[in-house]
Design a protein around this nucleic acid. Structure first.
Lengths: 362, 362
DNA sequence: TTGTAAGCGTTATCAC
DNA sequence: GTGATAACGCTTACAA
């Protein structure tokens, strides 16, 4: 027993000292020599479905543990051409409106052994430089949750980098995407409001730079026209400075503008998102002394945390964000694994959350 | 002219076809052969301060462009031992309370050419597995913005991986950190409230698992005792399910519990964060019909977006989050560059935001 | 300034 | 099951 263990321990200590002196990393060669096997045996032990005898495996793992050995992802990536990295292109809008998105995506990708490399796309971002950096990192795929110009999206295709658009699409282009039917959600909301007797609609839309906001706006207009109701008065701030405070302020401003324009309150104000809606509700109550939903209905989108606060209990629309995050990971992982080219577009639908800020007939 | 350009174009097309056929990536060798230089010349052209003649540089860049060449970060990382990757360990608490943190960190690291690799640490996370994955990725450093056990933090030191703790610290340990003086902020708040005449204090603390929440709680208690005021009644939910809704609900529950325990409302309720405070304000108004701040003062922490909404105008405390993010990037980049070992701890201080939910004497 | 050649630490192919 | 050996694509002395 001592005869077999002592020499091993001695050599492990020596090895560690040697590695230290040479200021290099612990490699699979070190583990191999410590375990008395070949380097390729070590490599196999760290590959999930490889054929190694139990005895070899045990000795290798023991040595690896004693040396604090960890496989080097850069070296592996060089060889396998798989980095297990996924680029996430995120706008500050997306992260502001869907704080849980990131955690969900991260979670689902990690289930597949993949990690997220973060690329924030904000107003001042040099997208070309960002992409140049992105290509270098050899990511296996990308999730596009930021609005990019078509020319930039095209580069992903040219480089054959698997990608999935999240809640956005490109006109006249078939691209893999996970989306929520924003227009459909808006249409449904309009239909329910109309059924409950609302006739004079107004809307405070989100930023025109957001495809989500545009789709909601389109859905509202179209459905109203189909129902033979008058076109809504639509207010839209040109704000790209996306912060909850800004949205709140545009809700407040928007309502004032609507009432100034119409001369009186409409039946309902459909707001492009919940922050806007809350700003609208607060202004309606405090400034115009309107009872909600008695004298004015207000609705939002997204079902953020504050929407359920008892002061608001906002009538809003919830996207199945967790499912969408999961679908995004599954789709991208599938594309990466199969190298497939078939374009798929998964459309989720949103659900109206009946709160207490809109009259909804029985 | 044609004599010099035509052949080049022909060979570039051939080269692209060849690479395509061999299903391999475009390498610096391809660029070298297209530009008629050696591979190392190409490498130099992509290295910032290298010595290359203008003519060579131009031809290389031309060829690189035509071939869509991009340096391979994995290969570079393999021999420079620098990945330009920073691991960000994030709790869902941190991302929920500081939605802008991520964007700020990402921005400041990108200024140094570094990208964030995301590691979410949530309740169910297997931290050992997470760290195993982290080591493999050869990150140059790590930002720890999640609560980890000491044994896990120690592993970063053992592996000599530069790290910076964000808004947390380890008892009896000197570790590089960027923090905000939560206890100091709480003390200042207490002092101001006491000066304005508040005597009976209560607190609805955040989760005991959060070091930030604990520090705030400690600051409140200590300062009150120094002032010779009675110890506060402290309510704390054991909630680790961190969502804005949950915080809001604990604010509501907390106030009921406080009033039930004391038999009447205290002078002020200091809440561990803004969501809790807003829940408390709503319940005070709607359920207990208390005028705020007339009959009850309420304060929060963090100055989230909703704190400034006109229904609340919360008196709260703001951390200089952007500066802290910047300092984090600077510190970590410095540590990576210098291989330094000196421990530094930068402490930022927070500022009271005078809202309308607490009586603050002149 | 430019080219040659030796790594960096893996995985993969192929005999044994 | 196991061990040589050749990539993977780059950086970096060193020589020219």
């Amino acid at each position: 027993m001592t005869a077999s263990t002592l020499p091993v321990h001695a050599s492990i200590a020596d090895l560690k000292a040697l590695i230290e002196r040479q200021a290099r990393r612990v490699t699979s060669y070190d583990v191999a020599s410590a375990a008395g096997v070949s380097q390729s045996a070590v490599s196999r032990c760290f590959k999930p479905g490889a054929s190694v005898s139990a005895a070899t495996y045990a000795r290798v793992m023991q040595a690896a543990m004693e040396l604090d050995y960890t496989p080097n992802a850069a070296a592996r990536s060089l060889n396998t051409r798989r980095s297990n990295l996924v680029a996430l292109l995120l706008s500050d809008q997306a992260s502001a409106h869907y704080p849980e998105l990131l955690a969900e995506l991260s979670h689902h990708f990690s289930l597949h052994g993949m990690r997220l490399l973060l690329f924030y796309v904000t107003a001042g971002t040099d997208v070309d430089a960002l992409l140049a950096d992105l290509w270098q990192h050899q990511v296996d795929g990308a999730v596009l949750a930021a609005s990019l110009q078509e020319q930039h999206v095209n580069q992903f295709e040219r480089r054959r980098l698997p990608m999935v658009l999240f809640n956005r699409s490109l006109r006249d282009r078939q691209i893999n995407a996970i989306v929520c039917d924003q227009a459909g959600a808006a249409r449904m909301l309009v239909a329910r409001l109309a059924a409950a007797g609302h006739r004079r609609f107004a809307m405070i839309a989100g930023p025109a730079s957001s495809s989500v906001a545009l789709a909601r706006r389109r859905g509202v207009s179209e459905r109203l026209s189909e129902l033979g109701l008058p076109a809504p008065l639509i207010i839209s701030d040109g704000h790209d400075d996306l912060s909850a405070e800004h949205d709140y302020a545009s809700g407040a401003r928007g309502l004032r503008q609507i009432i100034a324009t119409l001369g009186s309150a409409p039946d309902v104000v459909i707001c492009g998102n919940d922050s806007i809606a809350i700003g609208c509700v607060d202004t309606a109550r405090a400034h115009f002394k309107l009872a909600i939903p008695g004298q004015l209905s207000v609705t939002g989108f997204d079902a953020i945390g504050a929407a359920s606060w008892s002061s608001y209990q906002l009538t809003t629309v919830r996207q199945p964000l967790r499912q969408m995050a999961r679908a995004t990971a599954d789709m991208l992982v599938g594309l990466i694994a199969s190298g497939a080219s078939g374009v798929e577009r998964r459309v989720f639908s949103a659900a109206v959350v009946e709160g207490a800020t809109a009259r909804m007939g029985a």
